[in-house]
Simulated assay, not measured.
Amino acid sequence: MVDVSEKETTKRMAIATGKVFFPKEVFSTLAEKDFLGAKGSIVQTAIIAGIQGVKKTSELIPLCHQLNLSKVQIDITPSDNTLEIKCKVSCTERTGVEMEALTGVSISALTIYDMCKALSHDIKIGEIQLEYKTGGKHEYSR
């Protein structure tokens, strides 16, 4: 791991996004049922899973620092045969939270896939990317 002990503690925030792409007929079926599947609420389950993933990032990514998180917010929005995922993570630490935000999106997307795979295996996960980060030496905005 990188030594961050000399870095300044600052408020850090990152936003990541991603999408789950569905075949048109599968998305229509899910939308008609208000995104309730055989296993329950697809969106709410994916949000909870994503939050859990954010909290476990340092266990999943070998060289990530363990962080005390201040806030995790995941929003999942239906749009044009896709579910769009946005994860915002913040903390006051010596290193950033972009890996946590990316992990939150990824775990949410995988959970959506798991809950919908009985309808089709032609579901695609993609466009997972960092949108914004602040609080460290390098600010970033896509």
Results as ranks from 00 to 15, higher is better:
V2D: 10
D3N: 14
D3Y: 11
D3K: 10
V4K: 07
S5E: 11
S5K: 14
E6N: 15
K7R: 13
K7E: 04
E8C: 07
E8I: 13
T10I: 04
R12T: 07
M13F: 12
M13G: 09
A14L: 14
I15E: 04
I15P: 04
A16L: 11
T17P: 02
T17S: 13
K19Q: 01
K19I: 09
V20Q: 00
F21L: 14
F21N: 01
F21P: 00
F21E: 05
F22W: 09
P23Q: 11
P23S: 02
P23L: 06
S28C: 05
L30C: 06
L30M: 06
L30S: 01
A31S: 12
D34A: 12
D34Y: 13
D34M: 09
L36Y: 14
G37D: 02
G37V: 11
A38G: 02
A38Q: 06
K39T: 00
S41L: 03
Q44S: 07
T45H: 03
A46H: 02
A46P: 01
A46S: 15
I47F: 03
I47E: 08
V54S: 10
K55A: 03
K56I: 01
K56R: 15
T57Q: 01
T57A: 06
L60K: 02
P62R: 02
P62I: 02
P62C: 03
L63Q: 00
H65C: 06
H65Q: 12
H65S: 09
H65D: 07
L67N: 04
N68C: 09
L69W: 04
V72D: 03
V72Q: 01
Q73P: 03
Q73Y: 10
I74T: 00
D75P: 04
D75G: 02
T77K: 10
P78T: 12
S79V: 03
S79Q: 09
D80P: 04
D80K: 14
T82Y: 04
L83G: 00
E84K: 11
I85G: 04
K86T: 15
K86N: 12
C87S: 12
V89M: 09
S90T: 15
E93Q: 13
R94M: 12
T95F: 10
G96C: 07
V97E: 00
E100H: 06
T103K: 00
T103Q: 07
V105K: 06
V105H: 09
I107F: 05
I107R: 02
S108R: 01
S108T: 07
L110C: 09
Y113N: 00
M115K: 02
M115P: 03
M115C: 05
M115T: 08
M115R: 00
K117T: 05
A118K: 07
A118F: 15
L119Q: 15
D122M: 07
D122G: 12
D122W: 11
I123F: 04
I123Q: 05
K124P: 00
K124I: 02
G126T: 05
G126H: 14
G126N: 05
E127Q: 15
E127N: 15
I128H: 04
Q129N: 11
Q129F: 05
Y132Q: 10
Y132R: 13
T134Y: 08
G135M: 01
G136I: 01
H138N: 15
H138Q: 13
E139G: 06
Y140K: 05
Y140I: 02
Y140F: 15
R142A: 11
R142S: 11
R142W: 07
